[in-house]
Each structure stands twice: as C-alpha cells, then as structure tokens.
Computed example of a mutant assay.
Amino acid sequence: MEKRMIHLDETDLAILELLQEDARITNVALANQLKMAPSAMLERVRKLEEKGVVKGYSAAIDPLAVNRELLVFIFIKTKDSFANDKSARALAAIPQVMEVHHIAGDDCYLVKARLSGPMELMEMKRSKFSKIPNIISMRTTIVLETVKESSHISIEK
C-alpha cells in the first residue's frame, strides 16, 4: 500500500469535520458555515472526492434494527506469506465481515463481523472460514457491550 501525502488546508479540514458530522449536509449549508460561495464549496468537495480523501458517503444503521446484534472480533493465523493477501481477500468477501486488518503479533488478521447470533457465527466459521485453506487457527472474542463505536477520524488543525 503506497503512502501518499495530500496537502489539506484548514478549510479542507473544516469541510471534512462537517461532512463527518453530517454526510447529508447540503453544499449551500457547508458554504454558509464556512462563509464561502457555494460554487467554491462544490469545487472543494469535488477535489476532496477526486483525491480520495472523501471515500464515500454512508448511513449509520442500528445493528438491532437489521438483526445484527452479535459483534465479534476474530484473530486469525494463516500460513500465508506476508506478501500474499489471498486469505485476506477471501475473508473480505464474506458478507458478514465488516473489517479485515493485517496485524503484527502472533496472529495475521483481525476480523470484525456483525451477526444475528451465535448460530450464525458457527455457520460462518463452518461454511465460509473452513473453505479458506491457509487458516491455521482462530480466536473469537464476543463483544458484551459497546461503549464507543465510531467511524469518525479525529481531525487536528
């Protein structure tokens, strides 16, 4: 993964903060809050999108409303070499898997998944994870209570 430096000025950072608070904010409302012309704001947001700084817009959905009450983190060890991401791609293709992180330490990957309950967890492990040939071991942590969960990135100016 190639690191790239993108220069962001204070206005860009302010735009990003406002978009994180409310991705549905209108261009006019953004412009008003930052005391800019709507056309200039539209151009700024478009450039942030083109540069890949703004990767997309999404809705935060209550997991209970869609029967996804069980939150689990699964530590996975594989036989993959560090340069091979075949297992990571296979894990990422599983619909219930929300995140796959290549990690340092005893394990290779940390997977976050949302499920309806323990039976779906067992089924996912049996029917999906068991088909990934390089998995050596798995350790599952079940979340009892979530104190904080956020996709917001702290933006320092």
Rank of each mutant, 00 (worst) to 15 (best):
E43S: 13
F73S: 06
M41E: 10
I132H: 12
D80A: 04
R139V: 03
E123F: 05
K131M: 07
G56V: 06
M41Q: 03
R68M: 05
V111H: 03
S151F: 13
I132D: 13
I15R: 08
E145R: 15
A59L: 14
E50T: 04
K77V: 01
L48N: 02
S127Q: 14
E2A: 14
L30R: 12
T11H: 11
A88C: 02
S154G: 13
Y109S: 01
I25N: 04
R139L: 05
V147Q: 09
E156I: 10
I103T: 15
M119C: 01
S137V: 01
A31L: 06
L34F: 05
Q20N: 01
N134R: 08
I155P: 11
E120W: 00
A83M: 06
M98Q: 13
E99G: 01
D107S: 12
R24G: 04
A14H: 13
A37D: 15
M5T: 14
S116C: 07
E145K: 15
E21I: 07
S58V: 06
A31R: 15
E156Y: 14
I142W: 05
L115C: 08
E156W: 07
H7Y: 13
E2I: 09
T141W: 07
I25L: 03
K128L: 07
P38G: 00
Q96E: 15
S150N: 09
S154V: 14
E2L: 11
V53D: 01
C108T: 15
C108V: 03
K47V: 11
P38I: 01
V54C: 03
V97W: 10
F73P: 01
L91N: 02
M1R: 09
R89Q: 12
S116W: 11
I94V: 10
I15A: 05
L64A: 10
N27Y: 11
P38V: 01
P38K: 08
I25H: 08
Q96P: 09
V111W: 14
E120Y: 00
V111F: 11
A14Q: 15
C108P: 00
K3W: 07
E120D: 13
E123K: 14
K148S: 10
T78D: 11
A92T: 02
V147R: 11
T141D: 08
A83V: 12
L70Q: 14
T26F: 11
N84S: 15
E2W: 07
D12S: 13
K112A: 03
G52N: 06
E99M: 10
I103S: 07
V53M: 05
K148V: 10
A23F: 11
I142A: 10
E49A: 08
